[in-house]
Write a protein that binds this DNA or RNA. Structure first.
Lengths: 298, 298
DNA sequence: CATGAAGCCTGACTTTAGTCAGCGATATGG
DNA sequence: CCATATCGCTGACTAAAGTCAGGCTTCATG
């Protein structure tokens, strides 16, 4: 990786996170400790589960509890049981009181004010350029924050991705998609050593998946590569694919193949760009129109 | 200002400062408190004056002193007298010891590693785009961090700007520039109520200047508008100009004028773009070829 | 329904950050 | 040379952040 690029990223980190970040904190903190303000903000007008707050803010359970107590003491927050029918009685939900909503609105206003103060000194054209560049940085940074790792196929996040995949496929295939008619994939096939299921997460939210089956005496087979709409076009599919290939190659497989539907044009383009070449049908998948293979470097 | 733009800036602030900023801190902090690590970093291999560190990091004198003591105790830093011939015996200089330099190098390495980790998940083309966008954001953010405010013309920073202005003008005018031949500007003329000298600063460093003289019974006169090379093209000259106009308008003047040399083409373009129109010579400035005037809204 | 895990809580800390008054040495301006 | 300011330092704080061990309640599971 060129030193030039690294130096540029470092300059950015220094200037932007240090200066803007510090100012942002100042804008956030009103007569209140920063952690409390952040928490209040994160609860939001709609309320939030305590566990979600803990993971989003990365706080210790004791610390968070105390912060909630402080906000409750100031009459800004009410923490109560989940209240939902069939809800888990252990989880508690924090909601803003009237005063809390007022203070939240105040924070929102200040946040607007801060953004305004960044734009204010710039002329119209430069403003547009700054905003466009910021959007680009944000998009690509988000892409680089996504993590891809193995996950049991039975995990709720994995299930959610597979459901989303099935929904999308049902929408896009001519004549819909009936899982019962398609070649089945059983969970055991996606657990090492038979194969693996990889989950892509962004801030712990699942945003994509992919799996590979290591067939004995045959090329490994890639299945269920899917990326959430919100993060398409960031190269996540490509990363998922190469992680799956890496897994197969690491176990000694020298080729991977996959089947796909003619309507999934971007996927097909991605496979070609990633070095896959079209082959004859190797299975009888009723929804497939194209079959691809890629040889793996050992 | 459109809500669209503000929302984009806020999204950026959120993603970047919170996520990248927090990670940056983690990378910085090795078994050491963040403030100590930052201080060590800021001292750098070349050493630094204690006062400079205080202003750069925005720390309280007592706090900084204690941090220095802690680093000294760990054998990383040595604080000694200025040592320079004719140096101020009160100021002290912090320098890194061998161990300190080693730890500094380690921080440098980690900082590189962090930058690398941002770029690593991206493909080549996306990397280029991210870096380009980061550079753009940084440039424009720097522009919006510059502050313009009144400053006594005798202040060392003001003097430094005026000297830089004179050097540049000497380089660019045909046949150089001899201040003695030019229409003189006395300091008293640039102190309220006779006029004002404005200084543009970026992180407390002077990066530009401008002045206006409020002539009795005549249009106000703008002088010495100058912007440092490093921050040109960011609209700072334009901002300086409008601050000067605002000052004159605020005291009741309804027009400003100025003279300029034909070689300062960007300045001339800026005057025109800012609503100045060329007029007949109103003085006998030997270095001037163009004279401009702008009417001010009350 | 016994068992263990999960979710949230409190108590009892430590560490870090930050503030403020005042001191001793040095510099500066009349 | 005297008054006054500046620079860096120490002492004596407070506030905020963060850690860790347990305890109570609720849930899931055999």
């Amino acid at each position: 990786m060129e030193a030039e690029l690294i130096a540029a990223v470092r300059r950015f980190n220094r200037t932007v996170t240090q200066r803007v970040g510090a100012l942002d904190d100042e804008y956030m903190a009103r007569a209140r400790p920063l952690a409390q303000a952040r928490l209040l903000w994160e609860i939001g007008p709609g309320g939030a589960e305590v566990a979600a707050l803990r993971s989003r803010l990365g706080l210790d359970s004791g610390h968070l509890s105390r912060l909630l107590r402080a906000l409750e003491g100031d009459g800004l927050v009410a923490v109560g049981p989940s209240e939902q029918a069939g809800g888990d009685g252990r989880v508690r939900i924090a909601t803003l009181t009237g005063a809390g909503r007022a203070e939240w609105a105040e924070l929102d206003e200040r946040s607007d004010g801060f953004a305004r103060s960044i734009l204010a000194p710039l002329t119209g054209r430069r403003r547009e350029r700054l905003v466009a560049a910021m959007a680009e940085v944000e998009r690509l940074l988000v892409a680089s924050m996504a993590l891809i790792g193995p996950c049991p196929p039975g995990d709720p996040r994995a299930r959610a991705c597979v459901r989303a995949y099935a929904r999308e496929v049902a929408r896009r295939f001519d004549g819909g998609f009936d899982p019962a008619r398609s070649n089945p994939v059983r969970d055991e096939e996606l657990v090492p050593p038979a194969g693996v299921f990889l989950l892509a997460t962004l801030n712990a939210e699942p945003v994509g998946c992919g799996a590979v089956k290591l067939h004995r005496g045959a090329p490994a087979e890639i299945k269920r590569v899917w990326v959430a709409d919100a993060v398409r076009g960031l190269g996540l599919g490509r990363r998922m694919l190469s992680e799956l290939e890496r897994y197969a190659a690491g176990r000694g497989w020298t080729a991977v193949r996959l089947d796909t539907n003619r309507n999934l044009t971007e996927a097909i383009a991605m496979y070609r760009a990633a070095g896959y070449r079209e082959i004859e049908a190797y299975n009888a998948e009723p929804y497939a129109h194209h079959w691809f293979e890629k040889r793996l470097a050992p």
